[in-house]
Amino acid sequence: MDDYGRLAQAFVGLADTLVADYDAIELSQQLIESSMALLPIAAAGLLIGDVHGELHVLASSSEETRLLELLQLQADSGPCLVAYRAGQQVLVDDLNLEAQRWPDFAKQAAEYHYRSVSALPLRLRDERVGALNLFRTEVGAMSPTDISVGQALADVATVGILHQRTLTHSHLISQQLQGALNSRVIIEQAKGVLAERGSIDMDRAFVLLRAHARKTQQRLADVARAVVNNADTSAILEQEQI
């Protein structure tokens, strides 16, 4: 399939997700997967701001600790925070050259062989929502087309996370964002239960949780809530070959 075909498929897939009672976390996760499939990147993370203006990881291309730590690190100081606060794209073609600006982030990114990063803002008119982070292992700029595709995905994420584009009041926006963040907390609690019960790592626990939600056509947060509220988890833990 050509690039245009894959792009069309990604947006059709996302449109399918935006049905009546959809799940902001599942939508975010799909956006990450679309970004990984469509763009020349090695890792991706979607962060949203809480009511205090602090960023939290809502979805990422891996649940491995090292990627999450890198994302959280730059939530405190890095391109992602700048993109979020300014509401503008921050494109870093060579992280080595920015080592002085973000020493901790640049150092840790280099350890994981990420050489360049693009941070694309999630915003709704004047309201800052979060940022999409795209990591690459090569130095150099992404093409303007790739950046546009990334920004389009970020814009879809914004509308999806906020459930509707007509939100005007900032309190309504923070309500949606805090709600999405709380869903993420339930998922983390459920991952803990599954990891301990099945003697698996957190990444695997998430993969199983999500696969089960899709298979049974439930919202990820609902499956996670059931796990935390003591539901039988054998169907989740005994899935094969995922």
Partner: peptide, 21 residues
């Protein structure tokens, strides 16, 4: 609060001790 580990640890403790969240 609000680090992922706090919530993951809550889940782990539920299982280790057989108690609710």
């Amino acid at each position: 609060l609000g680090t992922r580990e706090v919530h993951q640890a809550t889940g782990i403790l539920m299982e280790q001790l057989g108690i609710d969240a």
